[in-house]
Amino acid sequence: MTNSEPKIVAFCCHYCAFAAADLAGVLRLKYPPNVHIIRLPCTGKLDTLYILKAFEAGADGVIVAGCLEGGCHFISGNLRAKKRVLAVKGLLARIGIAPERLEFFNLSSAQGDRFAQIAREMTERIKSLSSSVLTPLPEGKG
């Protein structure tokens, strides 16, 4: 790859976070291109497995973004997701991956700027972590 910016996956719920990401575009805000959005109907659909798979696929960070609390289009999806993310954070810590690489956010569809800010912040946050965390130690190649 031509750039060394951290690769980030953002799981966004259709109704709020994804819409906020759209709004960020409409407002022509800027954030690093390495943030890739995957649309879910609701963060309630976020299988904990997806997070681990994202890291396996080479992500340096994972954003899970759903509606504001109380604002989930499906009532409780974001509450479930928040707990799942918390559990995976615990697991990550125990397998040597900084839990800061994973974060859950609540935002409304009107918060385009917040989305861009989150994308920038997570990029910065992950840059500041030791970059070797996910790369295999040299002798283990192959």
Partner: peptide, 21 residues
């Protein structure tokens, strides 16, 4: 089956991280 998937992913990640896939 769900736990299998999760545990497998976690172990793979951990082992990759240790350099022993």
């Amino acid at each position: 089956e769900k736990e299998v998937g999760l545990l497998a992913a976690a172990v793979r990640l951990a082992r990759k991280h240790q350099g022993r896939p």
